[in-house]
Design a protein around this nucleic acid. Structure first.
Length: 245
DNA sequence: GCGACAG
DNA sequence: ATCTTGTCGC
C-alpha cells in the first residue's frame, strides 16, 4: 500500500490556507446549469480518518446516474494534511480525495461531496474547491446546517427551504425523505442550485443521504481499516527483520 | 473576548 | 470525523 504524499507547498497554517482559498475562489464558475439529473455519471466522495496514526482514507465511487449502479470505485490513503478548522475543511481532505479521483478511469461526471460548496463563510467550501481543482461540475450535500439559518421545509420529500448566510441564499435545506431531517445542499462549481437539488433527490430514492455518499462512506471506512491492518503488518515484519532494532 | 462551527 | 449497545422496524 502506497501512502499519498502531501503536495509540496500545501498550506501549513490558516493564513496560507486562507490565501489559497481566496485565490481559487476567483476561478469559481457559477453561471452554468450543469448536467441534467439522472444522466451520465455521478461520483460520490468521502474520507475517513485515524488521527491517532495520522492516516486518511478517501473513496471515489462512480455511479450511473440513471440506474444508480456502481460503475467504478477507487481509493487512496494519505497523511492528514491539515487540522480540522471550520471553514478550512477542504485543506484536510483534498490531497487524498484528488488521489482517489486520479485513479478512476471512468468519467466522474458530477462530483457529489460531503459538506458544502457556496454555503461557506467565504463562499468557497469543499465542493467548490474540488470543482475548481478538477474543472468538474460539483455539488455539496451536507448532513449538518453548519452556521446557517434556514427555513424549515415541509414534511414531504422534495420540500425545501432556503439556507441563508448574511442575508444571502447560499443553498437549500432539502427533504430527501418524508418526516426525516433534511440535507443541506449547495452549489459547488458549474452546476445551478436547482440542478444540485434535482441531482440530490435523484440520488436519494430511499434514504436520507444520496447513494453516492452512502457508497463512498462505506468504501473509505473499508479502505482505512485495510490501511491500518497493513500498517500493523509492516510494523510486525519490521520488528522480526530487525529493521526497527 | 468567548463560544459555535461542514467533516 | 470518532468514541459506542442495544433496539425498534421494514
Amino acid at each position: 500500500m502506497k501512502i499519498i504524499e502531501i503536495p509540496a507547498g500545501w498550506p501549513a497554517d490558516e493564513g496560507a490556507a486562507l490565501a489559497v482559498q481566496e485565490e481559487l475562489r476567483g476561478r469559481l464558475v457559477l453561471g452554468e446549469e450543469g448536467p441534467e439529473a439522472g444522466t451520465g455519471h455521478v461520483t460520490g466522495l468521502d474520507v475517513a480518518y485515524d488521527d491517532e496514526r495520522d492516516l486518511v482514507a478517501a473513496a471515489a465511487v462512480v455511479l450511473d446516474a440513471r440506474t444508480l449502479e456502481v460503475v467504478e470505485e477507487a481509493t487512496a490513503v494519505g497523511r492528514v494534511s491539515f487540522p480540522y478548522v471550520p471553514g478550512l475543511l477542504a485543506f484536510r481532505e483534498i490531497p487524498t480525495v484528488v488521489a482517489a479521483l486520479d485513479r478512476l478511469s471512468a468519467d466522474p461526471g458530477v462530483l457529489v461531496c460531503d459538506g458544502y460548496g457556496l454555503a461557506h463563510p467565504r463562499r468557497f467550501g469543499l465542493a467548490s474547491h474540488l470543482g475548481v481543482l478538477t474543472g468538474l461540475p460539483s455539488i455539496g450535500v451536507a448532513k449538518n446546517p453548519f452556521t446557517f439559518t434556514y427555513e424549515q421545509p415541509g414534511p414531504e420529500r422534495g420540500a425545501f427551504g432556503d439556507l441563508v448566510a448574511d442575508g444571502e441564499t447560499v443553498g437549500r435545506a432539502l427533504r430527501t425523505r418524508a418526516g426525516v431531517k433534511p440535507v443541506y445542499v449547495s452549489v459547488g462549481h458549474r452546476v445551478s442550485l436547482d440542478r444540485a437539488c434535482a441531482h440530490t433527490l435523484h440520488l436519494s430514492p430511499r434514504y436520507r443521504l444520496p447513494e453516492t455518499t452512502r457508497h463512498a462512506d462505506a468504501l473509505c471506512r473499508r479502505a482505512l481499516a485495510e490501511a491500518l491492518a497493513a500498517t500493523e503488518q509492516e510494523a510486525a515484519e519490521g520488528a522480526t527483520t530487525g529493521r526497527d532494532a
